[in-house]
Simulated scan of single mutants.
Amino acid sequence: MGLEDITAKAKSFLADGKVQDALKSEKAEDVSDNILESVSGAVKKVTGGKFDEQIDSARDKADKAVGTE
């Protein structure tokens, strides 16, 4: 299975209505908030605060894609 096959399967999976509903649920919001906050905090620590604004922006964009807020 090549990268193109994996990409096609992922697109198909994400297009499913049930998957979209799950991604827009309150539970997904809570889980994604925790993950995004942990990851952004770790990246900020590694970069020594040099890219905090860019990291926050990326975190906010990802947060809008998953969950209810």
Results as ranks from 00 to 15, higher is better:
K27Q: 11
E26T: 06
G67L: 05
Q54D: 13
E37H: 07
M1D: 09
G67V: 08
A58M: 12
A58Q: 05
V31W: 07
L14N: 02
Q20K: 15
G17R: 06
D33Y: 01
D56C: 09
V31S: 06
K61M: 14
S32W: 00
V66K: 00
T47N: 09
M1W: 11
E29P: 02
K18P: 01
K27A: 13
Q20S: 06
S32F: 07
D30P: 01
S12R: 04
L14F: 11
V31Y: 08
D33S: 10
T47V: 11
K24A: 11
L3F: 14
L36P: 01
K27T: 09
V31R: 04
E26W: 02
K18F: 09
D33E: 10
E29M: 00
A15F: 05
E26L: 09
F51P: 01
G2T: 14
A28C: 07
D21Y: 04
K44A: 12
A10W: 08
G67Y: 03
G67R: 01
V39C: 07
G41N: 13
E37Q: 11
G41C: 11
V43K: 09
A28T: 03
I55Q: 03
S57W: 05
D16N: 13
D52A: 13
E37A: 14
A22F: 04
S25K: 04
A65Q: 12
A28K: 01
D5H: 08
K24F: 04
A15N: 12
D52S: 15
A62P: 00
A10N: 06
D21M: 12
T47M: 14
G49K: 10
T47P: 05
Q54L: 13
D52N: 15
E26P: 08
E37K: 13
E4A: 14
F51Y: 13
D60R: 03
D30I: 01
D63N: 09
D21E: 15
D56S: 13
D33V: 05
E37I: 08
S38M: 12
D30W: 01
L36H: 02
V43P: 02
R59G: 09
V66Y: 03
D30T: 13
N34M: 12
